[in-house]
């Protein structure tokens, strides 16, 4: 019943090797069953498959030559456990001490209970035009903070790219050859369900983004929903079909232009606010879809940014590149 924990390096390679060997045996078996006419007709296909097999064997040899022994990982894991417990315990004690110094919850004299909250609740809808006070708060009153968060997302995606993006060459070929080895390929069940669910997920994400200033939601949550829909589409249909509408070029253009437009919108707010000018953009009727000035557009830009980042993380971790 119980399975021993095996050395994962050796299991991984033996699995890939089994896969390649099995494929070779299958080809030989199929070849032996065929008549001469069939052999002649499917010659081209056979040649392609044989070439694929040869390439896989080359990748396997390459991977075997270019990996280092993982013995140091075992020592590292032992140390890691001890240090993790120590760090967690220290953090726990620090947080408990800090909490013990905080004022009582709900006390009327607390420093958090001041005129700022009163202003947000009483004048939020009138000043920002957003029925959802939270959206008006994070995209208008505290827009600087949210702009920083969006930049953090951009920098995080850039860092993951620096670490995981694979350059052209042998490594990239190896990544492609074994991209779907562990995952089901062309699984009809997932494809049928994805064909039904993905459009619904996209529509829900767009609804959440466009209604960000009217109902709970906004750019971050809607973008996360659209990113999840993209990931579902990829896992059902593979990267080849996704690249027809979302490749590295689209990713770059969408992400950078969304961030630039977002910064432009907020710069307008900062400039007008810092100089004490009036806002000349009409706020519209609170409750309508097109209202609340720039908040709707900022939501759309943030949503694009978040959706791109989510999908890029998935693609980078899975195969080390967007195309």
């Amino acid at each position: 019943m119980s399975r021993k924990r095996r050395d994962y390096k050796s299991t991984f390679y033996s699995r890939i090797e089994n896969f390649v060997n099995g494929k070779e045996q299958f080809l030989i078996y199929r070849e032996s069953k065929k008549t001469d006419v069939e052999k002649f007709e499917s010659l081209e296909e056979e040649l392609t498959e044989a070439a694929d097999l040869l390439e896989m064997r080359e990748e396997l040899q390459w991977m075997r030559d270019h990996t280092e022994p993982l013995d140091f990982l075992k020592r590292f894991h032992r140390l890691y456990g001890v240090i993790a417990v120590l760090v967690c315990f220290t953090m726990m004690v620090l947080l408990l001490v800090t909490v013990s110094w905080l004022p009582r919850f709900g006390n009327a004299d607390n420093p958090a209970n001041n005129e700022v909250i009163k202003r947000y609740i009483e004048k939020g809808e009138e000043e920002t035009g957003a029925v959802n006070i939270v959206t008006g708060l994070i995209l208008n009153y505290r827009g600087f903070d949210t702009m920083g968060e969006t930049h953090v997302l951009f920098i995080a995606a850039s860092c993951v790219m620096i670490l995981l993006l694979i350059a052209e060459g042998e490594e990239k070929r190896a990544g492609y050859a074994f991209d779907r080895y562990l995952e089901p390929k062309n699984d009809i069940i997932i494809q049928k369900v994805a064909a039904f669910l993905v459009p619904m997920v996209f529509v829900l994400g767009i609804y959440v983004i466009l209604n960000g200033h009217l109902s709970p939601g906004g750019g971050f949550s809607g973008g996360a929903i659209i990113g999840a829909g993209l990931i579902m589409y990829v896992s059902a249909y593979g990267f080849h079909k996704t690249e027809r509408f979302f490749n590295e070029h689209v990713y770059k253009v969408a992400k950078v232009s969304a961030l630039c437009f977002y910064v432009c919108c907020l710069s307008y707010y900062f400039y007008m606010g810092a100089h004490g000018y009036d806002n000349h953009i009409s706020l519209g009727t609170p409750g309508n879809i097109i209202s609340s000035g720039l908040i709707l557009f900022i939501n759309i830009f943030v949503g694009t940014e978040v959706a791109c980042t989510m999908y890029a993380f998935y693609a980078l971790f899975r195969k080390g590149g967007l195309e």
């Binding site: 699995r15 080895y181 562990l182 995952e183 089901p184 699984d187 069940i189 997932i190």
Partner: peptide, 11 residues
């Protein structure tokens, strides 16, 4: 569940 099972069977 189906995807996880298929993956377990594969690997």
């Amino acid at each position: 569940s189906h995807v996880i099972m298929r993956m377990e069977y594969n690997i």
